[in-house]
């Protein structure tokens, strides 16, 4: 990967991005002049101590928070001061994986995955079930498709979450500490699964993680400290 790549391959383009929390005297700057570009098909690990602004950066890129100042383009769309509608539209092209899997307890594994597909009206209703089952099979849960989350192990739940994030072929996956709640072996498996599936689909993956055991899966490691990027190295 290098900076000469054409803008067509740019999935996220951030320039001079700053972000503040609070108002008036309590106003506190969280991010300082961030410059970061994510390219298509990359796996990036975003590291940094607690409070360094990793999660804020993630939510801004994911359209979960309104960006305030600077330049933030996701899939070529400018998200600074974007309307709520535009943010929601952007989110539909992003797969999210959370630390605490966040599956819907009242839905089976298959239904959880389907919720992601049902957002896309271009996917035929008759294909939805098949696609959900196919992806659950590819994460190794072919015989657990009708299980409720409460009956799955932590690793299995996280696999369902990965299937949910990837089933609609997003252009980008944002994962926040996906291995934090897992033992080292399951954590490793999960990250490798994410890497493998995203390679197949050609989507960009940004993983926020403290976990040093998984750093080797990344194409690039970005480190954030006190709201500034301190490291941006290709491996």
């Amino acid at each position: 990967m290098n900076n000469q790549q054409s803008t067509i391959d740019q999935v996220v383009n951030i320039q001079n991005l700053s972000h503040f929390f609070g108002e008036g005297k309590l106003k506190k700057q969280i991010l300082f002049d961030i410059d970061l570009t994510l390219y298509s098909g990359e796996v990036i690990i975003l590291k940094g101590p607690s409070g360094s602004g990793k999660t804020t950066l993630l939510t801004l890129m994911g359209g979960l928070r309104s960006a305030q100042s600077g330049n933030l383009q996701v899939f070529g769309e400018d998200l600074i001061g974007a309307s709520k509608k535009k943010l929601v539209q952007t989110r539909r092209n992003i797969g999210y994986i959370f630390q605490a899997h966040n599956l819907l307890a009242s839905l089976t594994a298959r239904q959880n995955v389907q919720m992601s597909l049902e957002l896309h009206s271009e996917i035929k209703a008759s294909d939805i079930k098949q696609k959900a089952i196919a992806l659950l099979e590819s994460v190794g849960l072919g015989d657990h498709i009708d299980y409720y989350p409460q009956n799955l192990s932590g690793g299995q739940k996280q696999r369902v979450a990965i299937a949910r994030a990837l089933v609609a072929h997003p252009q980008m996956v944002l994962a926040d500490e996906p291995t934090a709640a897992l033992d080292s072996k399951s954590g490793r498996n999960i990250v490798e699964l994410m890497q493998q599936l995203s390679r197949q689909q050609g989507c960009t993956i940004l993983i926020v993680s403290h976990d040093n055991r998984i750093l080797d899966v990344a194409d690039r490691i970005v480190e954030l400290e006190d709201g500034r990027i301190t490291v941006n190295d290709e491996q």
């Binding site: 539209q89 992003i94 819907l104 307890a105």
Partner: peptide, 15 residues
């Protein structure tokens, strides 16, 4: 009880 689930769905792009 479902707030975190709804927040998840909102993140996925539900209006």
């Amino acid at each position: 009880n479902h707030l975190s689930e709804y927040a998840t769905l909102k993140a996925m792009g539900y209006k």
